[in-house]
Write a protein that binds this DNA or RNA. Structure first.
Lengths: 198, 198
DNA sequence: GGCATCATATGATTTGAGTCATAAAAGCGG
DNA sequence: CCGCTTTTATGACTCAAATCATATGATGCC
């Protein structure tokens, strides 16, 4: 998370989106740096037959969309607001300027990328080999670091539909429903009022 | 790729490994930065029942193992020499010092991480979508950027066994054999003398 | 409150990658 | 050149997740 004032001093704009709005699309050139000011943004892909895969969900303070900016490639996924949301937006030039003028920020960004890479590495090996239950537990652990909220009674709470969980793991809804039920029975997961706890 | 002399000036050691040697193991703390001087290094995981998953293969000029250094987490995978190999090795302190004293190198590292993240994002969505043929073509495209060699006649050449391809995609050997045969029939791949061309 | 929409649930069936077994071919060392 | 190991190849069978169908349960809203 980069300090709000620092961003604004470097010319950041605060932009508002409504639920469902797209910020950018897969295949487009990267022109902006984004940091979430409020709400939640997801990045996703759709495969040939329309099935969605959610790359990640970003909430307040988290930045996204830097890799294509730095790697000089097209966006590998779409970005869409999953609630009404506001983001700080910097142009590529402003962003690169910020990096070079502020080594601390640069290091922070590098660390963020490193952390994301670390989790993707874990994800990719889990997804490639494991059974549905492992995949689900893994993605939940991953999300806990990011979008989870702590709740007194049940621990971490995730507001995710089974469909979203399916899209995050590459499984089908029915499979996720059956797997989460099984995990609940085993006591590895708790479900209350459509919320998932762990 | 960071300039060899720059690395040596910052105290890098040149270390030799024999085929099969392990450089570090999953779960260990990250203490070094590595850049391949010669040969090839792979990073891999083994799941509960011993099945291997190859995270990546790194050859001359490529660095690896930075994410845990920067994200302050344990290694998510093992590193093993798949041929006799030499690496430049910097301690964590030397590496961080190099980053802060040399913004250009820092930016280069950031770009490398961004690039790897970009490919992992693509990989993870492809892998989750299941079809073996897609997974194979994707990993081949990915490797072309890295370990592929251009050959006059047939384009890019990859020296990979079907088993390695299986470990890179999370599939089984038999599945890879059948899928590559099918791809060859469709003309999307060429196989000559156990080498894969695209 | 009643209707429409979205989410969860569950059974029946299909399908394709995994598994197992076995064989042939290619590469390799002495 | 000859065994030995590794890699590729193939057929038969299994099984679990995808698919299909359909129902029930929440939630929101006019």
């Amino acid at each position: 998370m980069i300090d709000e004032n620092l961003l604004l001093n470097h010319g950041a704009k605060r932009v508002a989106y409504s639920k469902g709005d797209q910020l950018f699309r897969e295949g487009e050139s990267a022109v902006n740096f984004y940091q979430v000011a409020s709400g939640e943004i997801k990045m996703n892909n759709y495969n040939e037959d329309g099935k969605e895969f959610i790359q990640g969900i970003f909430s307040i303070g988290q930045s996204f969309g830097e890799p294509p900016l730095l790697a000089r490639v097209k966006y590998p996924a779409n970005a869409e607001a999953i609630s009404d949301a506001e983001v700080f937006q910097l142009s590529k030039e402003q962003f690169l300027d910020l990096l070079s003028s502020n080594p601390k920020v640069h290091l922070k960004i590098t660390e963020t990328l490193a952390k994301r890479l670390y989790y993707k590495a874990i994800m990719v090996s889990e997804i490639s080999s494991q059974e549905p239950e492992h995949r689900i537990l893994r993605i939940i652990d991953y999300l806990k670091q990011h979008v989870g909220k702590v709740e007194e009674k049940y621990g971490y709470r995730l507001d995710l539909t089974r469909q979203q969980l399916a899209d995050l793991t590459g499984l089908r809804v029915e499979t996720v429903i059956r797997a989460t039920k099984s995990l609940e029975k085993k006591g590895e997961l708790q479900i209350k009022k459509r919320k998932v706890y762990r």
